[in-house]
Design a protein around this nucleic acid. Structure first.
Lengths: 195, 195
DNA sequence: ACTCCTCGTTCGACTTGACGAACACTGACG
DNA sequence: CGTCAGTGTTCGTCAAGTCGAACGAGGAGT
């Protein structure tokens, strides 16, 4: 391995989840009560390849992983999933300095659109006092909130976070959650994401 | 390639979408106006590897693809997908009167998600003086902008509109267009929609 | 005991992906 | 004109992924 000697930018410490892939493959395989050899045969792979893959040693090619996904009957991305996302908050000014090609311009990707996802855009305003209670939406729903003005307290029940203008947060929408304005004239961009 | 000689089950004619991956990488790269070498540098890859990958010849490892996904700031699965409307402005306070259920709450649907559409969320900040010129994206791209702070002049060339905090505008992104900050500390939510 | 089968692992040989260097091309600058 | 800094490509080399075969371990049935 070791393709590069450059000090990886510290703000992106993530490496490829080889361990997670290995576990996912083994999990999906045992769930179907398939033997390692049987899955290898169905996927057109050798047992040795699959064995090394499941042991975490290795760096499979997309062709190999694709064959496994087909043989297992799962979408490709399933083998790469990391456990459910927690509430994610990006404080104003703490966005990733992704691109700043020219002069006084910064742009940050808050949330890329997952495959097949659909997003509706809302703009909400509220005055203090009343909490908007939203019950659980259909599973897989994710909500994104970018505060435009005022102050908000929002998030799943028990995990609410306070947000100031410029703050961004996203959290699962398939659990009960609330939005509460803490200041007069509070406003926010709300993106509902369905999968 | 050709790892197996077994007659592939005819009901699953699919192979790994190497072509689609190649196109996706190039699309995401050019969308960010990154050169091949620059992306390779950020991802810790060699130019040759990336060149071959984008040309469709090759079978990248997950480590390689993962590095690219991180460098591009997109979820891994995005790279595996198979894959002109007038300017519309909604002035602050002129949203559709979707009055709240309870008291001091208003919510407005700015733009419903068309079937099959995909949207990426960005947060942009800028200082006056420099206009960010974005060249035409792939056809069908639509951009949504919700101003959070400051003042903006944005839109397709020749049709720019001035926007104040709370204002919303959407316009085609497949034509040359610009974003210009007119006040210090200007910020906005930017939603890129692809079909 | 033995045989037969299947399980998952480890071994050497082959194939191929990834790297670095050199390449041709373009446009900007003197 | 030449030079430089970019673009993206092709080349040879090395490391790593993949393969087939052989391996030891565990059962089930004689």
């Amino acid at each position: 391995m070791e393709r590069t000697k450059e000090p990886e930018p510290a703000d992106v410490p993530e490496g490829p989840p080889l361990r997670a892939i290995a576990d996912a493959v083994r999990r999906e395989r045992t769930r179907r009560e398939l033997s390692l050899g049987e899955l290898a045969r169905r996927a057109g792979l050798s047992k040795s390849t699959l064995s090394q893959l499941e042991s975490g040693s290795g760096n499979p090619s997309v062709e190999t992983l694709w064959a496994l996904a087909v043989a297992l009957g799962v979408p490709f991305a399933r083998l790469l999933e990391t456990p459910s996302q927690p509430v994610r908050v990006v404080r104003s000014g703490h966005f990733a300095p992704l691109t700043s090609d020219r002069a006084p311009f910064t742009s940050a990707l808050l949330a890329a659109c997952p495959p097949g996802a659909r997003r509706d855009l809302h703009f909400v305003t509220a005055e203090p006092g009343a909490a908007r209670e939203a019950h659980a939406h259909i599973p897989g729903t994710v909500e994104h909130m970018l505060v435009s003005a005022g102050r908000w307290l929002a998030g799943p029940d028990g995990e609410q976070v306070e947000l100031a203008p410029g703050d961004y947060a996203c959290f699962p929408g398939d659990r009960p959650h609330t939005y509460t304005a803490l200041a007069a004239g509070s406003a926010a961009m709300l993106v509902m994401e369905y999968t």
